[in-house]
Amino acid sequence: MSIQEMTREAVAAAVLEELTNVAPDLAGEDIPEDADLRDEFDLDSMDFLNWITALHNRFGIDIPELDYPKLSTIGKAADYLGRG
C-alpha cells in the first residue's frame, strides 16, 4: 500500500511502530501525538537518525536534514509523510 492510500491514523501508527523499533525501550510508553520526542522521550540524535532512516526505507520518502524540525512529534511526522 502506498502512503497516499493510507489513512492518517494508519500513517501515525506506522510512524510510532518504527519509533519503537529503533528504540525498543520506549515500547509500552504512552506517546501522545503532540509530544516532543527529543524533549519528552529523550530521543537522541542517533535514535532520531535511525528513525528517519526507517521512515525513509518504509515509505520511500526523502527526508533532508533541513526538514528534521518538521518531524519533532509523531503527529507532525505523520502530517509530513502524508503530504508525500
Binding site: M46, L49, T53, H56, N57, P64
Partner: peptide, 17 residues
Amino acid sequence: LGAHNAELPPDRRILMA
C-alpha cells in the same frame, strides 16, 4: 557535514558525534 549529508539517504548520513 550538511553538504555531505544533503546528498545521501538517511542511512548513510553522518552525525557530528
